[in-house]
Amino acid sequence: MTVISLKDVHKNYPLGKTEVHAVKGVSFDIESGDFISIAGPSGSGKSTILNMIGCIDTPSEGIVTINDTNTSDLKDKEITNLRHDVLGFIFQNFNLIPVLNVFENIEFPMLLGKNPAPKDEREEWISHLMEEVGLGEWKTHKPNELSGGQRQRVAIARALVTKPQIVLADEPTANLDSETGASIIELMKKMNKEYGTTFIFSTHDQTIVDIADHVIQLKDGNIIENRRTQA
């Protein structure tokens, strides 16, 4: 089942009097449950594409559809709800809320929804997730008391807590050493298997590309390779 589809998507950024053509007519489909890598050198347009999929940016031209909804037709409120309900985000810089502890950071997206689950249900699910990402003992710690790898594990739990269909991760390992980075990718893969969540992550590190079911290689705003290894 296709969850995301890009059709001839362009993105131009104004740069002084001229424009930067960051994405130059890209089309691809993403299948539910896949573990997708968007790879390419710096400046090739990975973040730009992920931002458009994540509905935090809009294409200059072309269409991005999520679950058959054209995202450019939506108002801010609807887009916000869509991000909350369907998508999860993992950032390069972890982006945890500094005033909230580990538990509260993970709980945060759950409380944003219209009908948050009851407290005991939430607690059970969050405790489970914390065990899954290996942070069972860190419940009440603040983000600044954690290592980079631990923070990214919190971010993964936070991205999964609302049971989204798709998790987007823009260079989730770029701020980690290669060993920790590999373990983060492995954790994401494990979650992908366990919950069937579609993961799309970008990286310029070729060594972690191979773990993906579907690799999209970019160069200068164009797709140079679109390969799906799994049937």
């Binding site: 935090i56 916000t80 991000r83 945060f108 944003l112």
Partner: peptide, 16 residues
């Protein structure tokens, strides 16, 4: 600013 961006991305509405 970044924190606001994060909260918005995760699904917090403008009013909040």
């Amino acid at each position: 600013t970044k924190e606001i961006g994060t909260m918005r991305a995760i699904g917090m509405h403008r009013g909040s």
